[in-house]
Design a protein around this nucleic acid. Structure first.
Length: 87
DNA sequence: GTTGAGCGT
């Protein structure tokens, strides 16, 4: 199975607007399937969002569905970048 | 009141 080397179903979400929250992503990604976890990477040195995050789904189909639905699509004024996570 | 490639406190 090609999940990107992870036993879970995490997808990398990049090119986010700095004003986007985890709640916004959770609502948006739940359209593709059952989201079990959403993490927005915040810079520990500055306390600001790094502009990317990770979204974990209940199964692989939902994760790949999210990629198909949202990769390259517009979100909060930015072209969303969605791909299978590597770690 | 800022910025823009990235794979994770």
């Amino acid at each position: 199975m090609a999940q990107g080397g992870n036993t879970r179903f995490s997808v990398y979400v990049g090119n986010l607007s700095y004003q986007t929250s985890e709640d916004d992503l959770g609502n948006f990604f739940s359209q593709a399937g059952h989201v079990t976890n959403v993490r927005l990477v915040i810079d520990r040195e500055t306390g600001r969002p790094k502009g990317f995050g990770f979204c974990e789904f209940a199964d692989e189909a939902a994760a790949q569905n999210a990629i198909s639905m949202f990769n390259g699509q517009d979100f909060n004024g930015r072209a969303l970048r969605v791909n299978m996570a590597n770690r």
